[in-house]
Nucleic acid binder design. Structure first.
Lengths: 217, 217
DNA sequence: TTACATTTCAGACAAAAGTATGAGTTACCA
DNA sequence: TGGTAACTCATACTTTTGTCTGAAATGTAA
């Protein structure tokens, strides 16, 4: 059961989404928010799996709301659902931590599909928005939850980390000091957009970044 | 590729195992140890995925070696391979942290099968040894890596933990103080036989203890 | 050859995480 | 009704983690 929170200032939009998602047996709309602030509050109490977030809303816009949500509850996914596909709207959304970006003209089936993909750990960008993203990616590579630019050494560290090892153990395995491991690990967290080693390990497992090794706890 | 270390004081046994495992394309025997002490040392340098460990060996027996290995490298699995199926031999092995216990009369195919299962996170006990285990389980439930006695509340905490949350976040989600969360978490670690939250999260994911929720990083 | 990325390491902190121990509460079982 | 398990919380620590800043060595691509 995927628990969905809808955040949109237009009543019609919320109605439409709810009606449609109700036809999906494994979806449950746990709440509705009329603006970004309400969205953050409801996320806190309801702890949904995913938030369908409108970009433009009163009180607090979708970007701000997404930032707050992702910083407090990094595991809760946000799918930006809006009607703008230009650079100025897409990029901030992705940078804020949204796992996906879809235009509101999306087909219902496609929407459900997108949500499922996100829950599986994939990132979804509407084709129209992708092109504008591609350009930016060249200039600014700091969007690692889209593209993963871990260096070889960082991948080594992450692999060890994903075996449940401590910094000291990783250092010993890779024949470097604990300081070095800490440096790598900090960089990994930034690139993966996670806050700590547990999230990094879960991310690696979920996204199958653990190609090298096969053991686990 | 599953990297195997063989620890047995009988040369013939080692030969036999090696020859057989060589026929398996995804197995690699990375080393052989003639006693427990050597096994521990080789584990340190070779970092295998799994150790096939004889119970009775000179220098250091399989139980001791397993204890040391599991305490230092909890992610490395140990399959006890021996010829005793009585209580006094089986229980210490399991308590030492062995993921499996098989008699030496095991069919080669069955052995490979067991190893694969262990790598998948399952625990393997030879039928003959299972019955003696069953009895003991009633008396002594402190064998959590076999049977998981997490209380409901501990399961709640573990579920939150497996979303990548910090203690503070878990506390807020479950409406208790951080102190309480720490208590639960310490207990969980003991029961799961892991050292920290990352290992616990990986354990939960691997062993599918995350029934309740579906989200991740 | 300059510029940049990668890898290594250090010092100094701040912030979490974990452990140990004790204790009060409820709830249920024998 | 006494014992026990589960849940809660606290105090007092120790140990790890993680961040920031700075820096040196290496290799490589423009």
């Amino acid at each position: 059961m995927i628990r969905v929170l809808i955040a949109d200032d237009h009543h019609v939009v919320r109605r439409g989404l709810i009606v449609f998602l109700k036809t999906q047996k494994d979806f449950e709309v746990v709440g509705e928010a009329k603006n970004g602030l309400e969205a953050v509050e409801l996320v806190e109490t309801l702890q949904p799996d995913i938030v369908l977030m409108d970009l433009v809303m009163p009180e607090m816009d979708g970007i701000q709301a997404t930032k707050r949500i992702k910083s407090k509850w990094p595991t809760i996914e946000v799918l930006m659902l809006t009607s703008f596909s230009d650079k100025d709207h897409v990029l901030p959304a992705i940078e804020a931590g949204a796992a996906g970006y879809q235009l509101k003209d999306i087909e219902p089936d496609e929407l459900v599909n997108s949500i499922r993909k996100i829950m599986r750990g994939e990132n979804i960008i509407h084709p129209a928005a992708t092109t504008t993203l591609q350009e930016k990616i060249q200039e600014d590579k700091n969007l690692p939850h889209i593209q993963n630019p871990l260096t070889p050494r960082e991948q080594d560290v992450l692999a060890e980390l994903t075996k449940g090892k401590s910094n000291r153990e990783i250092a010993s395995s890779l024949f470097v000091t604990e300081k070095t491991v800490k440096t790598h690990i900090s960089n990994i967290f930034n690139k993966l957009n996670v806050q700590d080693r547990t999230q990094a390990a879960l991310y690696a497992v979920k996204h199958n970044l653990t190609e090298g090794s096969e053991s686990g706890v």
